[in-house]
Amino acid sequence: MVSLVVVLSISCQTYTIPAAYDTPYSEIRENPYGCWSEFELRNSASKVSGELICMEHDTVYVLVLDHHVQAIEAAQIAGYKIYTHKSQSGRYGKFSLLYLIPSVVGALVQSDYAGGFLSLGVPVAVVGLTHIIIEGSNKKNVITENNTIRLYEIAKYARYPGGKPMGVDLNQLVWKEES
């Protein structure tokens, strides 16, 4: 039980990206914004981070601040990360804890049988922990490329996956606000 809580708290620690862009399960299918992205540049030690806005010819547009879109030529890009969705570890932990409530209540209410009730919760704790660890271990919610840069594949994670819309002034764009 304690280990489940510890792992759950660790799993709740997220990446250093704005919370608004760490898309939770409830928003995955209808989030109208682009994904958070990080680009490493060939001739610079710094990274360019922000909301992926669109791809146009050989240029990637990233909203790095409100009203400030940075254009990056494909040739400059050494690697990138696209944060597609929030890791589900925390959600699996919450589900497991919910299912454990009857066992814990049983152990408290029927204290004579505390050992028995807690042992009933062991399979849930084991299965829950396994899911939490596996979900958090390989970070498949972050698309990472360092060598082969396939920019056309990341276009669909942009706010405008079809390319730069006509008549839109990119410098009017603002970040997603935290709900």
Binding site: Y92, Y99, S103, G106, Q110, L120, P123, V124, G128
Partner: peptide, 30 residues
Amino acid sequence: ETNKLERDGRNLLGISIAGVSSAIYSIYCI
């Protein structure tokens, strides 16, 4: 555009199979 979170349902099913039976047994035993 459509979006689907792959493997999420299967993961939740695994937790639920263990969880529901444990919860039912626990409630019954309480």
